[in-house]
Design a binder for these strands. Structure first.
Length: 135
DNA sequence: GCCAACGTTGGC
DNA sequence: GCCAACGTTGGC
């Protein structure tokens, strides 16, 4: 099983919005590196939901429930999207500041490349962030 | 609101 | 195919 981190601006689509919907298409990703990560996702993979711009923190865990398929918001037919469902809200959000300050997370792809909206996490990084949320 | 990072576009 | 200009993302 693989682990991922996916960003959304909460005033556009937040973790609570996902909880309300129960399941959602992760659409609108228009970046080749991020698309590549979504193509590599498999049903049952886990992803952290990260709020960019507002909050700037990881807030919940979600499950990949459908693998890559054409993005319904794309008319060119070039871009794909996956479907996600909420799994568990983090007890406490883990801020970007906390992640940056933690040497165990120094190699996180998202920290190295802040503009990438979908990035991989190692199992160790994923587990570590979940642990931080309980602290 | 500013600015750094970085992707894309377009002239050559 | 290179590179400058420009647009967008996202943190602060």
């Amino acid at each position: 099983m693989n682990h991922w981190l996916m960003k959304s601006e909460p005033d556009v689509f937040s973790y609570d919005d996902l909880v309300k919907k129960g399941k959602a298409e992760w659409d609108g990703v228009r970046n080749h590196a991020a698309q590549g990560h979504m193509r590599a996702m498999r049903k049952g993979d886990l992803a952290l939901f990260y709020h960019s711009n507002i909050g700037v923190e990881a807030v919940g865990i979600m499950t990949i429930v459908e693998e890559a398929a054409p993005d319904s918001t794309d008319e060119t037919g070039k871009w794909i999207a996956v479907h996600v469902a909420p799994k568990e809200k983090l007890a406490k959000p883990v801020t970007l500041k906390a992640m940056k300050a933690d040497s165990a997370l120094a190699d996180m792809v998202m920290l190295r490349q802040s503009r990438l909206s979908v990035s991989p996490l190692t199992k160790a990084q994923f587990d570590h962030i979940v642990e931080l949320s309980k602290a």
